[in-house]
Design a protein around this nucleic acid. Structure first.
Lengths: 146, 146
DNA sequence: CCGATTCTTGACAACTCCTATAAGCAAGGA
DNA sequence: TCCTTGCTTATAGGAGTTGTCAAGAATCGG
């Protein structure tokens, strides 16, 4: 399974939401505009994230989305798995020979690759990324001042 | 970029070729039949592997393919990169905000994921996999004898 | 209650990529 | 010359991704 644009959009949107965390909901339109993400596409993604228990939503005037889980408890892996499914590079259902001949040595390689990928993605959480993004932007500002 | 069926077919085919290494070329039809891979599809894959310098080919009667590089010098990463391209989960050309706003914190995550994946795939070579497959099959045979 | 705002949902269309097939050509050996 | 085998290109079907459209439901302020 691939890491698609869905996950990339969603992570960026969640970072934006984490940075705007003013204790009141943020309309999805604001996030879409600020991060240049197709609005109605992002609606689908946030809907999935809400069903998965990561976000809260409130309808009506001054409604919007807010975090249900703490941003530091939401990893990139969570987002990817919700939107793109399992990150396994190979669901080992390739051919008949993989089914009948007991064991396939290559399967272990794909399994290792999966574990390794999961480890990296699980280590990155939204709160950290939001902080790091701000730090990066401040570095750039300083460069201009000097 | 995803790890597609192409790479999986190719790795299995290379393992088969390594196991049949009788110093003379092996016809691609034999490999396709033994590993249950569509013949004309495998032809395309082996053609790419030949151009990449991994295989040698000989046409005509008693022709076929043989390794140009040693099987132990061919990693799974080599095969995947030849057939599927870069294993990067994200070519960071997503949206305008990634281009204009200097640096994107998420990009580091995708970069880490890529390195990690490359490490795992580079550690696995065809010769090892061929040996391990044979060992696995012998284990199964022993189980039946007991 | 009314209307504006915002999320909710389902359908669907355009597009790209993957997988596989077809057909004909090239080369080498008997 | 003929058969075997690899080589190349074109193409088609299918699946998945990406994005859009449209109607609807909930909530809030007035």
């Amino acid at each position: 399974m691939n890491i698609s644009a869905k996950s990339k959009y969603a992570v960026r949107a969640l970072i934006e939401l984490a940075q705007q965390n003013n204790s009141h909901p943020v309309p999805i339109g604001d996030i879409a505009a600020k991060r240049d993400i197709p609005l109605q596409f992002l609606e689908q993604l946030f809907s999935s994230l809400r069903k998965a228990g990561i976000l809260n939503s409130h309808r009506g005037v001054r409604g919007g989305f807010s975090f249900k889980k703490l941003p530091e408890d939401v990893s990139v892996l969570d987002v990817v798995e919700i939107l793109d499914g399992d990150v396994a590079p190979a669901t080992c259902t390739i051919g008949a020979s993989c089914d009948k001949s007991s064991r396939c040595a290559v399967r272990d390689v794909w399994a290792d690759a999966k574990s390794s990928l999961e480890g990296v993605l699980a280590a990155a959480n939204i709160a950290d990324l939001a902080d790091r993004e701000i730090m990066m932007q401040e570095e750039v500002k300083e460069m201009y001042y000097i």
